[in-house]
């Protein structure tokens, strides 16, 4: 990386960046940070040399221009490191997210099973209601039933 080229008349600095040292993603990141302070324009060759044009939104002094260039380079380094860490940790990050998603899914399964159990206790289909009660409720009167063979406690006492 060469020294920033300062063009005072145009209120502009041109910084040359080596994309082998600083990946394009980090250049975008650093440029994005400066959008509120300067007009940023990218040019050059993405594999050999990238030119970052920074034009001040306000009139800049020589000192301001140098500061702007230095701050951009710092931001570039910052983003470069962030990008590298993000790249290195990608596998473990994906693993953690995957594990969290599976965990959350398991929790849902348990909850749905619990609700099924509760439904069973409520007996929504009326399976646990004795046949006699169900039948009596329908027409209001209890119909005569054939005595069950060997049933205990019959009214007529016959066995």
């Amino acid at each position: 990386m060469s020294k920033p080229n300062i063009n005072k008349s145009e209120n502009k600095i041109v910084i040359s960046v080596d994309p082998k040292l600083y990946p394009l993603e980090s250049i975008y990141g650093a440029a994005y940070v400066f959008l509120d302070r300067a007009y940023v324009f990218l040019d050059g060759d993405s594999k050999k040399e990238v030119y970052v044009h920074l034009k001040g939104k306000k009139k800049l002094t020589d000192g301001d221009m140098e500061n702007l260039a230095d701050e951009f380079l710092n931001e570039l380094l910052n983003y470069s490191l962030r990008y590298q860490i993000s790249k290195d940790n990608r596998q473990i990050r994906e693993y953690i997210v995957g594990a969290a998603l599976i965990g959350a899914l398991g929790e849902n399964i348990d909850k749905s099973m619990e609700s099924d159990e509760k439904d069973w206790k409520k007996d929504p289909l009326g399976i646990a209601v004795p046949w006699e009660e169900k039948y009596a409720k329908r027409d209001g009167t209890k119909k005569k039933e054939p005595p069950l063979k060997g049933a205990v406690g019959q009214k007529d006492g016959k066995k």
């Binding site: 394009l24 993603e25 975008y28 994005y32 959008l35 940023v40 324009f41 034009k55």
Partner: peptide
């Protein structure tokens, strides 16, 4: 011109 370039850069970053 300059504002348009900034806008394009900000939008481009979303694609990366």
């Amino acid at each position: 011109k300059d504002e348009f370039c900034n806008y394009v850069l900000a939008e481009t970053k979303k694609f990366t």
